[in-house]
Design a protein around this nucleic acid. Sequence first.
DNA 1: GTGTATTCC
Length: 696
Amino acid sequence: MSLFWKPGAEKPQLLDDEEGGVLFFSSSLSSSSSYGYASLEKQRQRLPVYKYRNSILYLVETHSTSIIVGETGSGKTTQIPRYLKEAGWAEGGRVIACTQPRRLAVQAVASRVAEEMGVKLGDEVGYTIRFEDLTNSELTRVKFLTDGVLLREMMTDPLLSKYSVIMVDEAHERSISTDILLGLLKKIQRRRPELRLIIASATIEAKSMAAFFDTSKKRRGSEDKQHGLKTEPAILSVEGRGYNVQVFYAEEPVPDYLRAAVSTVMSIHNQEPPGDILVFLTGQDDIDAAVELLTEEAQNNGKSSPGLTILPLYSGLSRADQDLVFSPTPRGKRKVVLSTNIAETSLTLEGVVYVVDSGFSKQRFYNPITDVENLIVAPISKASARQRAGRAGRVRPGKCYRLYTEEYYLKEMSTEGIPEIQRTSLVSSVIQLKALGIDNILGFDWPASPSPEAMIRALEVLYSLGVVDDDAKLTSPAGFQIAEIPLDPMISKMILASNELGCSEEILTIAAVLSIQSIWVSSRGSQKELDEAKMRFAAAEGDHVTFLNVYKGFLKCNKSPTWCHKNFVNYQAMKKVIEIREQLRRTAQRIGIILKSCDGDTQVVRKAVTAGYFANACRLEAFSHSGMYKTLRGSQEVYIHPSSILFRVNPKWILFHSLVSTDRQYMRNVITIDPAWLIEAAPHFYRHRQPDSFHQ
DNA sequence: GTGTATTCC
């Protein structure tokens, strides 16, 4: 036991089921309906938010914007929409909306509220997520939806006119769509003063959010009331309901958080009473290594302690492996879950009493100069640290062991994380705003402003795709058509081009495959077999065409899971591909794309891909036997990823779909091209290049 | 000869 701990002063709160975390035991799900109405009603009244019912309704009545800081477990998400309904906000055909960042949360909260209200889900209470609309325009009065869906709704109804109150939940997470939504809602309020907003957040960063929505200060001399409403936001804090979590810090900075995590788990296991342990690490590599180390330690430790059940948890795991984590811990055993930050917000584990926090997570960062997004292991924020600690106090008082010093926590850790909008490419966001008529992107009132470089880069990319014109206005029809397709503009451009090239059927398939993680089963153990399986579908033209072969095979075998298994194809992923493709097909037809197959003419397929991805063209360096390529745009050194079908084939001219950066920049999903297509696809982009660089 | 923090339309 190399680590020593001292108690901290903090008392973090925790998440309740209806908040961010949404995974229930199946037993509790099935039994809850047998509780009957009275018991549910009692549970409702015990929620902390219950005694604020009248205050909340009063604030919403009198203020344009109310900010509710609902400490976790307060019950705000499930109760406030209902209170609003009871107070008459859904009368006259109006609808109360409540947004969530994640699909699962939308489904879970909606079914909970429907159950509590004793109505059928999809009637008075409904929800909408991508691919699933459980609402009835005649009946639904309380509607839960992802904030991405609400953003899409604005494209057909820019003022969101059917909603009387919009509650934006989990605003503290500062996801990219939440932030854009908040910016747009502020604009809508000017046109629709009667619209009420509720910003629900779990942290105390409410003041900056209040300042953002406060329009009263800007109007000098005028009263701060409009239509009898206060425009200065109200802030209300609701306490949470959870058990105390005692926090311990490392005495000294920890040189190796992986080893420290393992030895901390062992000392908890040897010294503390029963209760499951949740360890936050950064990624699959970390977690797999820690599983191995811990298994070893536990074996050496064998005699003195009954067994540990050691389980990894990250999104890349198969469903079956993820489900293991949620199965009850066998009697006399202690479960240790080694997780990424998926367990911080997206999934909730029951039975956790001890949390070990490495203090790190992988975060996406975007470099607008190179236009490359990178995943980097970075220190978490205080808010994340509190959230992680709170995971220990769900069933009874818990303990959290932080693998960093208290001084570090107090003095060096940032309060909040960097909002996503400042860490990603803005291409998708900008086109979305443009489609809503917001042309002055640089002047848009963002809750957190992205860097000017990132905004300019986004405009450049959109200009090169022909989505915006010289005045940075959306082009017609191309720009509007591309904005309509719910994918990255580069993929959407490819779909648009396929119309003229007569290969829309093929390109829709490719677009669907490219928008999921991977169609192959993840297999570290059986890499060789996977490679062999891939070769059965291999196309000399590259990965995109290979996808078409897999898709064809999947349809030919009648979407058989057995066929998938035999061929190392991920069945769940293929079902997703079918679903996305179907949605894209409908959208494509709506915007006038004619469905047509090119019947195996891979040249037109590759030309269509080039129309979207010309900026990712690369040329093999002459005399390079190491497979080094350089991008045509920036002369960046890049290599074909070993998972690509073209790995070691090294054709002279290729395009890549995305870059993965580790020690090298690897191109994932590449396709061969003829350089002449580049000038055809994007003359403005390549005109100034040296002509000789295009010679074969 | 290598890697997928997490979401969403």
